Simulated assay, not measured.
Amino acid sequence: MSSLFEPTHAGSLALANRIVMAPLTRNRSPRAVPGPLAVEYYRQRASAGLIVSEGTAISQQGQGYADVPGLYAPEQLEGWRKVTAAVHAAGGKIVTQLWHVGRVSHTELQADGQAPVAPSAIPAATKTYLIRNGQGGFEATSTPRALAAEELPGIVDDFRKAARAALDSGFDGVEIHGANGYLLDQFMKLGANHRTDHYGGSIANRIRFPLEVVRAVAAEIGAGRVGLRISPVTPANGISDPDPQPLFEALLAELAPLGLAYIHVIEGATGGPREIDDRPFDYRKLKAAYRAAGGKAAWMVNNGYDRHLADEALADGADLVAFGRPFIANPDLVRRLRERAPLQVPDRATMYGGGAEGYTDYPTLPA
């Protein structure tokens, strides 16, 4: 049986253990630039086998929340260089999560107050985080406009350029965000995609755009440095599909020959129940279909894992286990899991926005 604490590989990435820090949006990058607090925050958590950064916008159009970082302007890249250098100095590995939120945005966050973009002009039943008069809060997203087919190659290229910028900024690789009701997930799922062109309707059409993105990024930086995050049944950000099993089996079958670093699977509702009564899904069948198609990427599981569930997942064939919220309040989570020490609980009042409080001031176990 594999141990959480043994070294492993994910594509080209050599990892000190099988514990992954999942991406966590914290809204502490004013003007979309990660600063000194981000440097310290990620350095503190470098004992993870792999850190996946918070969602990082590939373009101004891809921004969906106030004070989340970007990867498209020189000052943003310089901020990330300091983060990656600190993580590497502490012995860690870090990839950035490439993010385009699609319809989960607001006109205030878009250039010149434009509408957010989406596969179809269907509003997201969710809220986004805005800052008004120095105070952060959640407000309904804006109604999006439907993307024209001729705009899609430009977004694919934004993903490609962001991947190159990530490596130039010192990241060890990238994770493409294809989950949680954001742009790539919107194209895949019928609840958000009512298109009648060759990017809508059939499964083959709906996975076309995500496949174009993944292939372009893999060609740019090498597939062994690329992961993909998916969430087959989460209702996050108002997303839905009536039959996700064949959809995601088709997606992963197409990706199998690429040789990606890992597939990051959110099981159940993101940050919520691992089983959803009205959205059943067979994750073992999905993985088996991917392996049968020749896919060899590391299989990363996520959602509500503790030490016991993580050990069970590894025994059942998972390669990596991602932990999200436990890493917020436990910068030394790897040690706490190893020693079966109590875990601190995050302060929800300081989860989004602010400064060091609830971000870099959680204590570690005594030496």
Rank of each mutant, 00 (worst) to 15 (best):
124 A>D: 02
107 T>V: 12
102 G>Q: 10
117 V>L: 15
189 K>Q: 13
134 G>Y: 09
364 T>C: 14
198 H>G: 00
65 Y>E: 11
332 D>P: 15
238 G>T: 07
209 F>I: 00
343 L>T: 01
34 P>F: 01
135 Q>E: 15
333 L>V: 07
351 M>H: 15
237 N>C: 08
279 R>Y: 12
323 F>V: 12
287 K>L: 15
214 V>H: 05
172 D>R: 10
259 G>K: 12
135 Q>Y: 06
164 R>F: 04
180 N>Q: 11
137 G>F: 01
13 L>E: 13
84 T>W: 14
262 Y>I: 03
77 L>G: 05
195 R>A: 01
70 G>W: 12
141 T>P: 09
95 V>D: 09
183 L>P: 08
259 G>T: 13
127 K>T: 14
5 F>K: 13
191 G>C: 10
145 R>K: 08
297 A>G: 09
232 P>W: 12
293 A>L: 10
351 M>P: 12
11 G>F: 14
63 Q>R: 15
225 R>I: 08
11 G>T: 14
60 Q>D: 11
316 D>S: 14
120 S>N: 03
143 T>I: 05
344 Q>S: 10
287 K>H: 15
236 A>I: 09
206 R>D: 02
82 K>D: 06
256 A>L: 08
174 V>H: 11
236 A>D: 13
21 M>R: 15
366 P>I: 06
97 Q>W: 01
134 G>Q: 13
102 G>C: 08
11 G>R: 13
195 R>M: 07
59 S>I: 07
259 G>C: 14
114 Q>Y: 10
193 N>Q: 03
273 P>Q: 03
23 P>C: 00
349 A>R: 12
327 F>H: 13
83 V>L: 04
360 T>C: 10
177 H>E: 06
226 V>W: 08
200 G>K: 06
215 R>C: 01
285 K>A: 15
190 L>V: 10
321 V>G: 00
354 G>Y: 09
123 P>W: 02
354 G>P: 13
17 N>Q: 07
164 R>L: 10
330 N>L: 09
317 G>H: 07
205 N>T: 01
65 Y>C: 00
137 G>Q: 05
298 A>C: 07
321 V>C: 07
67 D>S: 03
178 G>M: 11
324 G>P: 13
281 F>W: 13
256 A>Y: 04
40 E>R: 13
231 S>P: 09
50 L>N: 11
161 K>S: 05
210 P>G: 00
347 D>E: 03
308 H>D: 12
252 L>I: 00
279 R>K: 14
254 E>L: 06
145 R>F: 11
169 S>T: 03
94 I>Y: 07
267 E>W: 11
98 L>T: 00
21 M>T: 09
68 V>M: 13
357 E>M: 10
4 L>I: 05
166 A>R: 09
132 R>I: 01
62 G>F: 05
160 R>N: 00
289 A>W: 05
199 Y>S: 03
214 V>M: 06
304 G>Y: 01
321 V>M: 03
94 I>S: 06
140 A>I: 09
76 Q>K: 05
2 S>H: 15
58 I>Q: 02
293 A>G: 07
316 D>A: 15
210 P>L: 01
54 E>G: 09
207 I>D: 04
175 E>S: 04
230 I>N: 07
218 A>L: 05
321 V>F: 03
294 G>H: 04
111 A>I: 12
100 H>D: 07
192 A>N: 08
31 R>E: 10
65 Y>F: 15
